[in-house]
Each structure stands twice: as structure tokens, then as C-alpha cells.
Write a protein that binds this DNA or RNA. Sequence first.
RNA 1: GGAGGGGUGGCCGAGCGGUCAAUGGCAGCAGACUGUAAAUCUGCCGGGUUUUCCCUACGUUGGUUCAAAUCCAACCCCCUCCA
Length: 405
Amino acid sequence: MSDPEFRSDFLRTLSARGYIHQVTDAAALDARAAAGVVTAYVGYDCTAPSLHIGNLVSIMMLRWLQKTGHRPIVLMGGGTTRVGDPSGKDEGRPMLTSEQIEANKASIRRIFERFLDFDGPNAAIMVDNDEWLSGLGYISFLRDIGRHFSVNRMLTFDSVRLRLDREQPLSFIEFNYMICQAYDYLELFRRHGCALQMGGSDQWGNIVNGTDLIRRVDGGEAFGLTTPLITRADGAKMGKTAQGAVWLNEDALPAFDYWQFWRNTHDADVGRFLRLFTDLDMVEIERLEGLEGAGINDAKVVLATEATALCRGRAAAEAAAATAAATFADGGAGEDLPSFAVAAPVNILDALVGLGFAASKGEARRLVQQGGARVDGEAAGETMLVAPGQKVSAGKKRHGVIVAA
RNA sequence: GGAGGGGUGGCCGAGCGGUCAAUGGCAGCAGACUGUAAAUCUGCCGGGUUUUCCCUACGUUGGUUCAAAUCCAACCCCCUCCA
């Protein structure tokens, strides 16, 4: 896993922790990182007010970048968002207003402030590609930038080729997306001396386009690095739950649920996730992943608490861990549990719906009939009333409390 | 523009006049077994209702019929082939 060849802390750390899939010129980048400060960026979409677990690998890379003495840039795709990203299958996604985009950016920035240091010597910066994209003149852009892109080559890119092979429509704006992204890199290279772009493995082609553009236009040397696609041991995509994406922002997903997400990691993923999603040192991680049988649960608790601490703060992580311990180990109730406020005792079915454990009363009824609903640990009947102070559970994992309105 | 094919529940995909809230599969939920894991087995899986009841639903809008997801018409959208 680790590559002892690397001399720079930066690449040695990324390599040892499993972040690296491909690098354009590993040796040259390593030399550059060993010799001085490297400025690197990752681009993010800002169509939603929160990023999700799928973005976490790259966020952690930026964190390690900074921790090993280099300078991170967070690029927000405000400009491209304004155009409307057509990469999805359905074109019908809503166009966001400027106000929404600004609000999303502000919301997303709060997450980065947890992971990165925006002050100090290697202060992270956040920039929006709207700064340069929206002011572009079409003809001059074609002349200065467009001439460096060969359509023949663009047609060979997976993102394009797959679409053409399957005879699915590919809009012109989408075809131009890779040019915009390459141009982003050039701008960051010029404005901030940014010489490294990182991203998921699906971004390889786009990243390489950027490094090529920089070489052709400015004769500069820039690098690219991609992470492997992180999947779960059972092959499913990371971070998708029944409820949807696992959001990083507190207001999109409570800390307790975030903690629970990590706590429920598959056995086979624990070691890998500890390396990728926590700051723990490698010796400790090796000890944790060596735990046998049920002991692996201790490692999962550490994983959950450490990962939550990074994203939500230590206090929130400890609180979530305490709630989990009180709820699962002792059968009681912790403070972080979801709650449902009532003025007077209510029917168990309404309580289950109110807590969000059932989408409808019919579903709540089924839950009760199958013995999955419990009040203070005892199986509940359909007509049972619950009052403030009682704990309501749905299945083994979902617990909530009734509180007075 | 011409000729075909198709739009069904979160997804895939059957049904082609009544017995259809609609076969299967996936996903999901619950139960058993466990370790808040995996695998396996069982049950559930539109909404309401203490239930052989009522709503809403098979692209949209009309029509035929005692009765339509199923037939007809128009429209919208997607795909294939031809121009």
C-alpha cells in the first residue's frame, strides 16, 4: 500500500493512507512537494447547500495537503452552476438563482472551515470560477483557448465516447464542460500558482486536459492526482442510504445520524475508512483493524467518533457517542436522539410518524404488527399511547424520545 | 419530414377489457440468527381505515363500455430505421 519511494510528507501520507489512484508525474510532483510549498485545488459543485460523503475523500486530501505544509484551494463551481451542469441523465434540473448559489457557497464553506485552516501561513482559500468564466468573450476564448483542444481527441474521452457509442444525446455545453474545467486550472495556475489538481478517478481526463492546457499556453508544469473510487465492501456506492445522501452539514443531517452512519460500517471497510476518513496515526489504525470478531465494534466506535469530530466538532462527536452508548449498550436514551414533541399522550402510530420512523400511518401500523415497534423496550400494540419521557424505537437501530411540547 | 416501437409503483420490468393496488427482480423496512457487521431464512412493501371498505395510481386530455393499465382519438415525451 505505502510507497517508500516518496520523499515528500505529502505524497508519502496520501500513498500510505490509500488516497492515490493515478498521478501524472509522481516523481516530479514528489520532488516539488519535498522542495517547497505546493498549491493544489479540488473543484466542487455548489448546486446543493451541503456536500456529502462522496466529497469527503477529496476534502481529506486537501486537509493532508495543508497538514503537510502545502496550500489548499477550494474551487466552487459557481460559474458552471449558473450554466446548469448537464452531466446528469435528465436535463430537467432547475436553474439556480444567484442568491441560491451564494447561499450554497456560504453553507458549504462552513464545512471546509472544519477541515481546513483559512488563516495562518498556508491559509486555504476558496474561489469561485464565476470570477473568470462569466466574463469570458466567446471569440477571444475560442481563439486563445479553444485552438488548443483537438476535437478528435475530445471525442476519445470516456465521458464523450460512452455517450456517443450508446447514441445518447450529448449537448454542446456538455461537450464544452471539459474545456471550462481545463480553463479553471489555467486560471488558478496563473492567479495563485496552483500546480496540482486533485479529484476522483472520473476526473482524470479533465485534469489531464488542464495540465496540457497549462503547458501549451503558458509553458508551465502542472500536475494531476486522482483518488480511487471508494466503494463499500459489498460493492455499493459509498454514502447512499435509504434516506438519501449522507450530508456533511449539520442542518442537513444531525450529528447523531452522521455518527451512526460510520458506526454501521461493514467489518471489511473499517481499516480502509480509518485511513481515509480520520486523522489517527497509522500505528493506531493497524491496531484497531487487527481486532477480532466482535472486538471490531470498538474500532467502529473509534471510526465514528473520529470521523464525526472532524466534520462536526469534538463535542458533537462525543455527545453522539455518549448517546449511542446509552441507547444501545444500556437500553436507555441519550440526549441526541430524535425527539417528537407532544402536548398530550399520543397514539404510538402518530409517534412513529412524528419521529420520522415511518412515512405513513400504514407503515407505522405494519411496523407495530411485525413487532418492530417498542416503547421503553417493550413491544408496542397498535392502540398504545405514549407520553413525554418515553422512548420509542423502530427496529434495533432507530430510537427516539417523546418530549413535552 | 416519412415508417415503426415505447412511456406501468424508488429503479428495472410483466400485464394488454372484468378475478389489477397491478406477476417478477432490485432497493428498502421488520422478524429470526448475531456483534448497531456480513451472509442466510421468514414476513412486509401506494394512502386511509381495527379492513373482504373507501380514496389515489399505469405519459396528458377526452371518448367507447355495465366495466379500461388494457380498446379508440388527439396531444406531449423517448427510442429505432429512412430522408
